[in-house]
Design a protein around this nucleic acid. Sequence first.
DNA 1: CTTGGTGCAAATCGTTTGCACCGTC
DNA 2: GACGGTGCAAACGATTTGCACCAAG
Lengths: 151, 151
Amino acid sequence: MAEEAYEDARSRLAEYLSRHGLKQTRQREAILDAFLDARGHVTSEDVYERVRQDHPDIGTATVYRTLKLLVDAGLANASTFREGVTVYESDTEHHDHLVCLGCGEIIEFECPSIEARQLEIANEHGYRLTRHRHHLFGYCGKCQRQGLDSR
Amino acid sequence: MAEEAYEDARSRLAEYLSRHGLKQTRQREAILDAFLDARGHVTSEDVYERVRQDHPDIGTATVYRTLKLLVDAGLANASTFREGVTVYESDTEHHDHLVCLGCGEIIEFECPSIEARQLEIANEHGYRLTRHRHHLFGYCGKCQRQGLDSR
DNA sequence: CTTGGTGCAAATCGTTTGCACCGTC
DNA sequence: GACGGTGCAAACGATTTGCACCAAG
């Protein structure tokens, strides 16, 4: 990710903080960096592990609180792939995923025709749509060859 | 639900049990009944509350174990709408849901054209699909009128 | 009578919270 | 200075597990 993208995210967070009377701290900056560095999909624990390398004093509670803050600030999205674990992703990503049950690989996809149908379906039921979650589960080519797809 | 459907489910479970060298118990039968009675989408706790009315001695652990068994037996599906809670549904239901963020209503839908596209997308990535989860979140007509859709 | 099933309570696991102290604004 | 932020440890809530006992095959 280019430096400029980091700067953009940082200033978006700064703006959100000041607009809401919240404070800018080294912890928040460190966690944002770790989140961006991680790329793609991460759990709170992933971020915590990354952050603690440079900032061993930062605790899990702060990571949880800050990740939630990033969601509120519109910089991240929260999702649930595995039961009982929240996965965060950068807000620029799509919300459609192809998940491998063997190795855990996650591929993002986008399909305009599906998006269009979603809107139609919502309208048919009188719904106004705010977001969606579309997960396809299966086995990637590699895992199929390794016989990890038994069932 | 017609009696015959209960019978069908019961015999499907019986077959699964005997085929796997597992035992038929009054607890399992009671939990299956409670699950079917509940209809639609239920949590482990919902089922537990129902079961305990007729069988106060059945514990939560058995409910969890049996619900998992029903999934393995192909009689139920597990899904996650709210964070941190597993919701079970009868296997005959579809896996596509329209969820109202206001009142919590859940509508099931089915769209062949979307299903077809899903398969195409999976194939393009070399995936063999086993299941999917498609949730549309928004506000139903009633909640929109009541202004519950503020944002 | 063997092996799986059950109830209970204790243990897990991810996440949240209460509290005293610390750092921004 | 005031008030939000942080770390720590304790609290939580959903689910799981160890164990001694029970019951289906």
